[in-house]
Structures are given as C-alpha cells and as structure tokens.
C-alpha cells in the first residue's frame, strides 16, 4: 500500500514536469536516431568516397583534381602582378596572383616560395605551394605542388600565355 500512495502522490505533480519529460525524451530519441544513422551511414559513405576516388584516379589520371585557373582572365587582366605557367596532364595552366607572399632572397630557410589558391571547374578551391629549385636565383626552376606532385612552372610575362 505504501508504494501505491507514493504513486498516487506522483499523479499530483505539476503537469509541466510531464510535458518537459516527454519533450526531453523526444529530443533524446531524435538524437539517438541521428547518431545511429550517422554510425551506420558514415562507414558506408567513406567506403564509397574511397572507392570512387580510386576509380577516378585509375580511369581519369587524377584530372578531376586539376586546378583550373582561367587563362583568359589572366592574360587580359593587368591587375595580376605575378603569373606562373605550368603544365599538368598535358595542358598548360596559369597560376596568377596579385600579392604573392614570397621573396626570392637568401633569407629564406626553405625552398618554399609561396602559395596559390586555385579554383577548379566546379568552383572548389585548393591551395598549391610554389617551390624553387634555388633559393637565391630568380630565374631558376620553379615548381608547383599539386596533390603531392611537383610540376615545373616558369614565369610568364602575363600578356600572351594561353592554354
């Protein structure tokens, strides 16, 4: 009987506690469902991404990762201070930037000259580091790193470089 009395007393608690409890339970259940969904779908999604990336690399020679810098805009736009040309996948690209954060000087402790940000044809941006084979000579070879590989580039006069 004692238990029954306590239970009866709980019938008289403020109704707002029940509302709060029910809402909190709904929230917890939604959160658990979301977590379960993520737990089940994430590995599947990761597998798909890896699979299609590998297939893409095998079939397309990694061309989907190309930074497609628009040559047309570069050649006619005099606001760019520095234009580098490099070849990648049999095509010629321009890497153009207004204010490069590099300096050809002996004070550099690494051979990293700077970085460009390129936009691909889907609008996705990627950054690429620019290296020089020599720290103290402007005219030496310059390389652009794309996806871990280094591609030779040379400085353009920014007037007639076309793809």
């Amino acid at each position: 009987m004692k238990k029954e009395k306590f239970s009866e007393a709980l019938n008289h608690i403020d109704y707002s506690f029940i509302e709060e409890y029910v809402e909190e339970k709904e929230r917890i259940n939604r959160e658990r469902q979301r977590r379960t969904f993520v737990k089940r779908v994430a590995p599947l999604a990761a597998t798909f991404i890896v699979f299609f990336t590998v297939i893409g690399i095998i079939l397309g020679g990694n061309t989907s990762m190309l930074p497609a810098v628009p040559n047309e805009n570069v050649s006619g736009d005099t606001s760019y201070e520095h234009v580098y040309v490099f070849e990648y996948g049999g095509r010629k690209y321009c890497a153009a930037f207004m204010n490069p954060n590099f300096n050809f000087g002996k004070q550099y402790v690494s051979d990293e000259l700077g970085e460009i940000v390129a936009t691909d044809k889907n609008g996705k941006t990627s950054s690429h580091k620019i290296f020089s084979s020599s720290l103290d000579t402007v005219d030496k070879e310059v390389f652009i790193e794309i996806n871990g590989n280094y591609y030779p580039a040379y400085k353009s006069n920014k007037s007639n470089e076309k793809e």
Binding site: F6, A9, L10, N11, H12, I13, D14
Partner: peptide
C-alpha cells in the same frame, strides 16, 4: 497524496 505530490514537485 496531493500534499505529498506538491512537496515532490517542489523538490523536482
């Protein structure tokens, strides 16, 4: 039971 319910409510 009502009184006890009110006390429990205050405690909650």
């Amino acid at each position: 039971a009502q009184r006890l319910g009110a006390i429990i409510g205050e405690y909650i």
